[in-house]
């Protein structure tokens, strides 16, 4: 197999695994049972989505996806933080 084919199929498989991880985490978001389980699932969706973007950057050989991955990570961090704060006090801004 040529290096290009190895990269295309191998990284495609890695991406599929990360997307499957996102689906499993999304199932936990839908299923619950409690609010903290849903927030944890959302955090995992963000994490695996970020890793999938990094792998996509490898597949296309473009450095542009690095910034997208950083932004997704930042948004996931802020979202989980706000939600966890909400669970604790019922208010995000006080």
């Amino acid at each position: 197999m040529s290096p290009t084919l190895v990269l295309t199929y191998g990284l495609g498989l890695a991406q599929a695994m990360l997307v499957l991880a996102m689906v499993l985490a999304a199932w936990r978001v839908l299923r619950g049972p409690r609010a903290q389980d849903r927030v944890l699932g959302l955090d995992t969706v963000y994490l695996n989505g970020m890793l999938a973007i990094v792998v996509h950057g490898l597949r296309t050989g473009s450095g542009l996806y690095f910034e997208a991955a950083l932004i997704i990570g930042l948004l996931g961090f802020a979202a989980t933080l706000a939600l966890a704060k909400f669970l604790m006090q019922g208010e995000v801004i006080q």
Partner: peptide, 29 residues
């Protein structure tokens, strides 16, 4: 695709690392 200019050993190593990492993430999920 710009992967063509990568030597074979690097391509295999990149794929192995990415698959192992994705495997751990999937296990976590």
């Amino acid at each position: 695709m710009t992967g063509a200019d990568l030597p074979a050993w690097a391509a295999w190593l990149v794929v192995a690392l990415a698959l192992a990492g994705a495997g751990f993430s999937l296990t976590g999920a």
